[in-house]
Design a protein around this nucleic acid. Sequence first.
DNA 1: CAAAATACGTAACATACGATACAGCACTCC
DNA 2: GGAGTGCTGTATCGTATGTTACGTATTTTG
Lengths: 275, 275
Amino acid sequence: MISSIAELISDRIGMMPAGERRAAQTLIANYPLIGLKTVAEFSAAAGVSSPTILRFVARLGFQNYPEFQSALQDELAAQLQSPASRTLNPPSPNGGAVSPMLEATLDNMRETFRHLSDKQLADIVAKLADRRGKTFLIGGRFTDPLARYMAAHLAIVQPNVFHLAGQESVWRDRLIDMGKRDVLVIFDIRRYQDSLVRFAETAHQRGVQIVLFTDQWLSPIARFARHVIAGRTAVPSAWDSSAALFVVAETLIGAVTRQLEADGAKRIRELENLR
Amino acid sequence: MISSIAELISDRIGMMPAGERRAAQTLIANYPLIGLKTVAEFSAAAGVSSPTILRFVARLGFQNYPEFQSALQDELAAQLQSPASRTLNPPSPNGGAVSPMLEATLDNMRETFRHLSDKQLADIVAKLADRRGKTFLIGGRFTDPLARYMAAHLAIVQPNVFHLAGQESVWRDRLIDMGKRDVLVIFDIRRYQDSLVRFAETAHQRGVQIVLFTDQWLSPIARFARHVIAGRTAVPSAWDSSAALFVVAETLIGAVTRQLEADGAKRIRELENLR
DNA sequence: CAAAATACGTAACATACGATACAGCACTCC
DNA sequence: GGAGTGCTGTATCGTATGTTACGTATTTTG
């Protein structure tokens, strides 16, 4: 049963030629507003010609463009009249396999943040934004990309941010640069990696403050960590989900950036000039 | 402060003559859809003549009717993009600074998945799980970690998965290994990177099927992409959020794994033995 | 109550919009 | 490798749409 035009499109997008598919994609991406504009604007946004747009709507089964627009408007009207249906019960075109995964992920995030106090986050932000020391980031097998992601952003708003990559022996040697004023951000979810635990322990002994991103069962590194962020990771999949930790990381990135706004802005401007 | 057109109307409806007032009332009653239709339809619905409608929009301060319609559309676009503002205050326990960020992120995910059909995901999964070809992954400055994350997982359940890292010249040379049966997964959100666009174009010319993760404004790479995933990225922060794309990536990882379960399980067992 | 001013609709106009015909091009299949 | 098919963009056309001018009706004011 096809009720919305969006469904209709995704149903037939497979059988469309390249140009019309691009039209379909831009419409889905800016649904449905692009479709309410003129053919010329639509075609420009999609990067195709006007006739391609018209052929596209014809393929969807509409006699002409105005008829297509009317259908979009009717759909919008229905949506606007029952705002509840959009938030609760997403009339998800996806009754299928993705929905439980998404729902679980959203729950994980809410739960993760529920156990996270503002104070805790503020403390971590203050520490990360304190530029008297260096910041090191490292992750495990699957979580190292999160460390990279965070490092890529932090390195822009402040100096002395280092992502520890490559072979174990390489980053182990970097311990020599770490001291009391420095921060080490570690991502470690199960199955926890011995190498990371040993690394954390040594860093801890050197007085480095450790911020740990882990799952709800807590990596053994939590023993040595000054701050522990425990994210929910359970989803209906063969793998654990790092999405909640990812969002926490983004939140911290945003907060640190805001904290350093004054100096950060200047720094960002300098960086722009360097290009 | 008057922000919406509806407010503007109720502000000035008092000083309007009878006919224009009827126009105003019908617009408010069917807000804003009547305003998106033609002058003739609007006038018929209000029971007045076309010129009255035009005088009405002129009194609101618009130069002409299309300008008025554009304003309505912009307003609608803003509403549709942040459904949060329409749900009444979620009872967030954390009243603090993190909450808006989290709420925006959750909305982004819901919106992103709302525009994603099962069929589209299934097509991508089928392509990624098709082991007759190779899978390459690459990302932009901030999104490359997502490519890494996805590669790390996919590489476990199937052979011939490669993350393209390092200098541009290095991965550009890998093009020689790519052909019609291969898939290239690209992450590119604004500001879009020229090097990636060029890379995608060349790959496309070689017949490589491209799966693009981008933001709602669509990277120029969408031109060449077989599948486009447009994630919402807007959050109250100095940075864009890649969290929605991250969740889509995890969803795909899970689905591909399930698809390959039979062979994958055997493969995972072998990997375990190798340690 | 009369005269002026304002509001409204009818009808003619110009523009911009959607529609169509056609030619060039790429790809496929024999 | 060549004929054929199908897709796409350019250019042109007809028309629906917004706009304006003007005459009539209605209200307002002295």
